[in-house]
């Protein structure tokens, strides 16, 4: 496939009087890790939800895998949805199912595999995301926050998707856990050739694994590019974000643009 894997043109989103997005354009290339940043209330999560179809935009076009999403229904839509995985904040695991059953849920829904193959795939995904085999039979309420995120990622990867959407994957994790999670996403991405769309506030993740960064502000994508590009930007919010005290602490731009 040529061209971007996700292509958004003229996206508008509004809730009542409040306009969240206006004429928003964004391209995501195949195989890249795109980090989406922006202040609170700039519609990062709304953008993610619009792409995966949980939110119907007021206007605009969203193409994923070269197919227009708006107005797509039924089987065609389901076939497309099988090709991406979503990790919600805090995992959003089904609380009535064990971790292994959570991973098997999409497999059961979409495919007719044998019991043993499904159990093996679930076990494989559990170890792939760095959980021990004992986690399989546990219920989500018995897991720590970091383990829940890993389990959520395992479920997102159950159908071997081509794109994974991550909503603040490292929020609420301790720095060591967050770094380990970054590394996990990076290694899975390179092994499986995934495209990763990641909403995040974690400057460490942005430097560690994102190929490009998109900044949402003023109801659109204000800037998109590599970390080096971001450091060159003059917009006050972007300067504040990437040159602020937290950015310095995270070592952003160290050696290139020390202030």
């Amino acid at each position: 496939m040529s061209g971007p894997i996700i292509r958004i043109r003229g996206l508008c989103n509004a809730f009542g009087d409040q306009i969240v997005h206006q004429d928003l354009d964004l391209d995501v290339d195949e195989g890249e890790v795109l980090g989406v940043v922006g202040g609170s209330g700039t519609g990062k999560s709304v953008l993610l939800r619009s792409i995966i179809g949980l939110n119907t935009p007021a206007a605009g076009h969203i193409e994923v895998f070269g197919q227009e999403l708006t107005g797509l229904r039924g089987d065609t839509r389901r076939r497309l949805e099988r090709r991406w995985g979503v990790l919600f904040q805090d995992g959003a695991l089904f609380s009535a199912l064990t971790v292994a059953q959570n991973i098997e849920a999409p497999l059961k829904e979409h495919l007719s595999l044998s019991r043993s193959l499904m159990d093996e795939i679930a076990a494989l995904k559990i170890t792939m995301v760095g959980l021990g085999p004992e986690a399989g039979s546990k219920f989500p309420s018995e897991l720590s926050g970091g383990m829940r995120k890993r389990a959520g990622l395992a479920r997102a990867l159950a159908m071997d998707p081509e794109i994974v959407f991550l909503d603040e994957p490292t929020a609420g994790l301790d720095p060591i856990g967050a770094a380990a999670f970054d590394e996990l996403i990076g290694s899975l991405q390179s092994q499986m050739g995934l495209t990763v769309f990641m909403v995040t506030h974690d400057l460490d993740s942005l430097t560690a694994i994102c190929d490009r960064i998109a900044v949402l502000a003023e109801k659109r994508v204000l800037a998109i590019g590599t970390m080096a590009d971001m450091l060159q930007q003059d917009h006050p919010w972007i300067r504040e974000y990437f040159h602020g005290p937290r950015a310095r602490a995270a070592g952003v731009g160290a050696g290139t643009n020390g202030i």
Binding site: T98, A100, Q101, E120, A122, L124, E134, G136, S137, K138
Partner: peptide, 19 residues
């Protein structure tokens, strides 16, 4: 080859439900 090696190396059977 890498993917097959990695997958076979990683796999550990696990319980699906509590006994």
């Amino acid at each position: 080859e890498q993917l097959i090696a990695r997958v076979s190396g990683l796999y550990q059977p696990c319980e699906i439900q509590p006994p």
